[in-house]
Structures are given as C-alpha cells and as structure tokens.
Amino acid sequence: MSSATNAHDDAHGQAHHKFHQHHFLTMAQQASSAKFGMWLFLGQEVLFFSGLFMAYFVFRALYPETWLHSAEYLSKTMGGINTVVLLYSSLTMALAVRSAQLSDKKGLIINLIQTIVCAFIFMVVKYFEYSAKFDHGFLPGALYHGHEFIPGRPELFFTVYFTMTGLHGIHVVAGIGVLFWILKRAIRGDFDSTYYIPVENVGLYWHLVDLVWIFLFPLLYLVR
C-alpha cells in the first residue's frame, strides 16, 4: 500500500505546457484521455452507420433481383475514382500526423491542404453522381420515378444508396470543417512533438470516414 503522498505538484518535473488543462495531472494523461475519448466516439460512429448497413443487408436479402439490377445504374468508374481519392487523402492525413510528431510545420500544412483538396474532389464527383441519379428519377422511396424497368423495389435500393452515401457525405463535409480548423491552428504554430493530439484525433476521424467508404464502395457499386 502506498503512503499518503501529495500528488498535486507531482508532475514529473514537466514545465507547465500552454495547452495543459488544469484538471489533468500530466500532458500524457491529457493526451491519452483525449485519444480514448476519440476512439469511443468512433465506436459510436460504427454503430451509427450500422443501422444503414443493416437496412442494406435486410433489403438485399428480401429483394435480391432489385439489388442485382439496380446496381447497374451506379457508375463503377466514378465510385472507383472516389475510392482512390479517399485512400490518397487517408495517406496524406497519416503523413500530416507524422509531420506533427516530428515538429515539421511545413510538412503538416502541406499534407493537411492535400487532404482538404481530396475531400473537395470527392464531393465534386459525388455531385456529378447524384445529379445523374436525379436526372433519371432514381430517387429514394416515394420520390422514385425511374423510367427503366427494375424488378422488385428499386425505390428501396435508392433509399439505401442515398441514405448511406448521404450520411457518409455529411461526414466528409464535417471532416472538411475540422480539417480547416486544424489547418488554421497548424499555421498558427500550435502543434509540435509535445502537443499534437488534436491533429491525431482529426486524423482518426478522417480515417473512419475512409473506412466506411471502403465498405460502401464494394457493397453498393461492385457486388451485383
């Protein structure tokens, strides 16, 4: 049993860091807490998306012909381009974190800008895909008025398509927001090898957006 030591000023002799919050004992505790919190948030995101994946699997099982035929009207090429764009942005994001770890401010900024550009490219491609669906009347549920004959319940396929990619798109847009925030702080010079947890957490979020797409792409576009 340990004796009663006063842990108050027992901060391993570290100097008081600019971003050290008073209720944490050490910077390491603060970083570890923030990262654990982020992982819990990501865990909650997994369950959040799971509802839509559930809908996908249930209706795929109930209307197999619909799924086989509806996927024909999605562009594998556009989906493929977006996959590559997102994978590349994931790489640059990981490199951004690495730059922050090495206190490389210039590398951090360049990698963040590349990530943001990729996110915009993704959204632009998405825009073209969506407008093609709108033109053909391939819309969810009651809004569906496609002219091509698709057996079963094509309106459900497009409901699943739009809700899944739509929710993912919302996450990409939110990602662009936080990436700009982190870019601003990076330019200000907030991050170095002693404090980079915000970069790391935004990175984790961005990789999750990528992870979701990794599953969406084959499920919606490829498996027919």
Binding site: G141, T159, T163
Partner: peptide, 16 residues
C-alpha cells in the same frame, strides 16, 4: 420524403 424503409407501401418492413 417517404423513403420507405419502414413503410410497407414501398416494400419496407414495419417490423424491422
């Protein structure tokens, strides 16, 4: 907008 996942009118499943 009546997306139909839970609505039998559009082939959805209320029990889901």
């Amino acid at each position: 907008i009546h997306i139909g996942i839970f609505d039998p009118v559009y082939g959805g499943d209320p029990v889901l």
